[in-house]
């Protein structure tokens, strides 16, 4: 069987040439990274750009856990907050440099995810609400006055001694690259194929020899890592923050909607979703958040009722109608 393809790809029917696929994968990582690296020459609002990059990473994190496993994390902000506070503690208590501290923020989020692995036993709405409860519990823990010596409790975290607008900007660009790479590799990997199988039917996947629990846990930890890194770089760039700001449920909400809007299960969908919707938010949401929220809510309802595949599905559908040859469309 010479034509048997060694790596499990998402392609079907006529398979694209391996070099073409590899080129597309490389572009999916490099183009967004390069665009963000150059963006500061066009838009001088670096904090806005960092925030958008943070949401790109968060949307990709939601993509990893929801897009590949069907687990909807309402409490995703918990990992973000854990990353932000992990970074703060690394700087304030361990005296780490900002870059190492950001990485440690990602590690702390992964540790939180390890503790929360039992949540993966829950399904559907149970998981969604349980993850929210876990995030709120974590927020309540971090902001508890009894832990002031570690987290500074409700009085907020101060990272101004390592503040660096340029440093945090480049760190954010690097983390965008990590997130894009993670999703591309996951999509092409055996784990990605297994996760798609598990999502389709858990029992069949299990009899195919897939370790369902391990596969899901892998996606869960990866998604936590991305959120933790995002939280860390956000903390670094904003430098002073309160627990309510980094554990805000709105962060989960934005990340989920950005990912859904762009299209989960795709590589570029969440990036487009985050950039487009965050710019809209920035244009009208900051001064009149309620009107943005209204639009946002309507968008979610429309996605749920009419566009379950998000923007990506609309584009693919249009392409399929144009091309109608099938084959290379996916």
């Amino acid at each position: 069987m010479p034509e048997r393809v060694a790596d499990a790809s998402g392609q079907r029917a006529t398979r694209a040439q391996p070099w073409r696929r590899r080129g597309a994968d490389l572009a999916a990582v490099l183009v967004p990274t390069a665009l963000f690296a150059l963006a500061r020459t066009v838009d001088s609002n670096m904090l806005l750009l960092v925030t958008i990059m943070v949401y790109v990473v968060l949307a990709q994190g939601v993509n990893v856990i929801y897009g590949f496993t069907g687990y909807l994390p309402f409490g995703y902000a918990g990992f973000f907050g854990a990353g932000a506070y992990g970074t703060y503690i690394a700087v304030a208590s361990l005296g780490a440099g900002a870059v190492e501290a950001t990485v440690l923020g990602g590690v702390v989020a992964v540790l939180v995810a390890v503790v929360l692995i039992p949540l993966l036993r829950l399904r559907g709405a149970y998981f969604a609400i349980a993850s929210l409860a876990a995030a709120l519990a974590l927020a309540s823990l971090v902001s508890n006055p009894a832990l002031t010596s570690v987290t500074n409790g409700p009085y907020g975290a101060d990272l101004s001694k390592v503040y660096s607008a340029n440093g945090s900007y480049w760190m954010a660009v690097a983390i965008v690259a990590v997130a894009m790479l993670a999703v591309v590799v996951l999509r092409r990997s055996r784990l990605g194929l297994q996760l798609r199988a598990v999502r389709a039917d858990q029992v069949s996947a299990s009899y195919a020899g897939v370790n369902v629990v391990a596969a899901r846990t892998g996606a869960w930890l990866l998604s936590a890592l991305l959120a933790g890194l995002a939280g860390g770089v956000y903390a670094w760039s904003i430098s002073v923050f309160y627990p309510t700001a980094v554990f805000d449920t709105t962060i989960s909400l934005f990340a989920i909607v950005f990912a859904l809007f762009g299209g989960v299960g795709t590589v570029l969908g969440p990036v487009v979703g985050a950039v487009v919707l965050y710019y809209v938010y920035n244009a009208i949401g900051v001064s009149d958040p309620q009107y943005f929220q209204l639009i946002f809510g309507v968008v979610i309802v429309i996605i749920a009722l009419f566009l379950p595949g998000g923007l990506a599905a609309v584009l693919v559908g249009a392409r399929r109608r144009l091309a109608l040859r099938g084959g290379d469309v996916r």
């Binding site: 499990a8 079907r12 029917a13 194929l193 297994q194 798609r196 199988a197 389709a200 039917d201 029992v203 069949s204 996947a205 009899y207 195919a208 020899g209 897939v210």
Partner: peptide, 22 residues
Amino acid sequence: RTFQIPKPFPALTARENLEVAH
């Protein structure tokens, strides 16, 4: 085992269904 009502992975091709397996 096989199932009375099989549930293959519908969005994967027949070949990919096998690729998933150990």
